[in-house]
Design a protein around this nucleic acid. Structure first.
Lengths: 341, 341
DNA sequence: CTGAAAGCGCTTACAG
DNA sequence: CTGAAAGCGCTTACAG
């Protein structure tokens, strides 16, 4: 591994000049610059990032805090993989790498912050893990640039990106209503989760807007999982007035509902139309195809990268970013009409 | 941010001693050690990893090469997320962080290796992306500890971990045969992919072992995706002798087959039993539940971490690790019998 | 068991 | 436009 000193000697210049060739090329004589660049290529010179970080206090690395601890080993964000692709791509386009933070610093309340400091991380992206424990809070309040996904954060240099849950839920209700459904029930997510609360809010708002009556017996709580959706649907089927449509605040719950409906000998969409939320992979694979509200998964990563880099570059925290959702119409509401997606 | 020098002065010892407290504690006087540790905690001293890496040439970081380039933005390993969890957990248990490598170093053939050198990465994990391009080859041949997932590698300090595809496919055939099926077709994956070839091999071996005739018309090529499975199943349904069972080398293909079967007015499992491979999320969600061969997803990550750390520690490359698979019986083959999983 | 010293490979005012 | 020098914060033979 050649060093800057060897490269400098080879070119008959000082290490300082070589350094400038890589860091502020515009300041060095074009001829010298070319000379150095060519020699660097020839001997395979590569700047040592540790030395650079030590000297500059910048690592060009962004930390990713994605909590999968012992208590919740199976926890998964519905489209973690897409977010990660978007994040990685956008970040590397801006010259940053992504460091996955291990979260086992003895369970200390400042675990994440310690990792950030040790490695001189320039910023951090947090993927919502449903809780908001001290390590996250400590990090957010530390002044390290910090962008959170799917949940608000408070701190001097923080912001977040989320989906338009309210609008997405409203679009689901609108779609059902436009397809002629009049008794639209909902299987809600847990109210303490932000998406759960917001999607319920969107449902209620749109129902009201369209003059559809709000019936408490048509609002059932689920847990975002299959079994919860199934159980909730069974309760809906026992309601005094059977709904002719259901908006489930998550695809797994929607698929659970599909099972309950089939079990009751009813047909989707003829007897009951169903709309989910998230557009997870199974949505397209489950018969008759689940109409659902898709989030802009890659956009999450890109938006997060943009926001964190803005703050790293000294900019003010950008306002929270709310990404638009898209209704994907499939068989569970009768399939796309001409011209529809 | 306190430095080792300040901490040393505070304790009335030399920086060398403080360094030893953190790096070879057994060599320093217990009293001094305690003193330093306590003071470190009090002033919040954190060793600077860049400085440490610069001095030692070890970063305690492992690179993750997971290619999602422009040509294949949507490419996904079936259980990327599980692998990542296992990898991260196992690695951080051993004191390593995971650096996601950006792969845009101008498309150079040594792109990955350059990143490894710049960052002094101690080792690398490669997730198979279906191709084996120069950047991967260059890396594997460089002498950097390197473990690959789901595909063999050649290089001085390399090894790989994979699933028992042959055994898993054989188990699928055995299961179908034991459930009374006699005409067992297969929807194979592309032969050029390793899992594709191995699963086909397992199918043929087990068919032969059980004295079941090999019929070319019952071996149809798929592409691991839904549409391919659907098309393949349609061809199987037109075969002279209609199969009473199908082993699909991937779950998406199996689900595609389910659709084709339903469309033909046939019942699963009554008319045709179906087994898939991978146990992706939809397998459990698609009616009537897809029997499938599950891989040890978390084990992948753990095994990879073990292997790479072994090599980092100077050990010889461990032999390739072949992880056992598990048959998960669901409705598409009649569901579990008593005592079965 | 401990310290002084040199070194890891870069960057960046400062001076010219 | 360029160089000499100091400094970033650690580690590690070497000597005691």
């Amino acid at each position: 591994m050649a060093t800057i000193r060897e490269l400098a000697r080879l070119c008959g210049v000082s290490p300082a000049t070589v350094s400038r060739v890589f860091n502020s090329p515009e300041v060095v004589n074009p001829k010298t610059r070319e000379l150095v660049l060519r020699a660097a290529e020839r001997i395979g010179y590569l700047p040592n990032e540790s030395a650079r970080t030590l000297a500059t206090k910048r690592s060009f690395m962004v930390g990713l805090v994605w909590d999968t601890d012992h208590r919740r080993p199976g926890w998964r964000h519905p489209f973690f993989q897409d977010i990660l692709i978007g994040l990685k791509t956008a970040l590397s386009g801006r010259g940053y790498h992504l460091l996955m933070l291990a979260t086992n610093d003895g369970g200390r309340p400042d675990a994440h912050l310690r990792a950030v400091r040790r490695h001189n991380l320039d910023g951090v992206v947090l993927i919502d893990n449903g809780t908001w424990d001290p390590p996250l809070r400590t990090l957010a309040e530390s002044g390290v640039p910090c962008v959170s996904l799917d949940r608000p954060v408070e701190g001097p240099r923080t912001t977040y990106v989320t989906s338009d849950n309210v609008g997405g839920a409203a679009a689901a209700v609108r779609h059902l209503h436009e397809r002629g459904r009049r008794t639209i029930a909902t299987i809600a997510g847990p109210e303490r989760t932000r998406p759960g609360a917001e999607r319920l809010q969107g449902y209620r708002a749109e129902m009201a807007r369209r003059g559809l009556p709000y019936r408490p017996e048509h609002v059932v709580q689920g847990d975002f999982y299959l079994a919860g959706g199934y159980a909730a649907m069974r309760r809906l089927l026992e309601a005094e007035e059977r709904p002719d449509a259901v908006f489930a605040a998550g695809d797994e719950m929607a698929i659970g509902a599909l099972h309950a409906i089939a079990e009751a000998g009813l047909k989707v969409p003829q007897d009951i139309a169903v709309v989910g939320f998230d557009d997870i992979e199974p949505a397209a694979l489950v018969p008759p195809g689940l109409t659902t509200v898709a989030q802009d998964t890659a956009g999450f990563g890109t938006a997060a990268a943009e926001a964190v880099v803005t703050m790293i570059d000294g900019g003010d925290p950008p306002p929270p970013r709310v990404l638009p959702t898209t209704l994907v119409v499939r068989g569970s509401t009768g399939g796309p009409l001409r011209g529809e997606r």
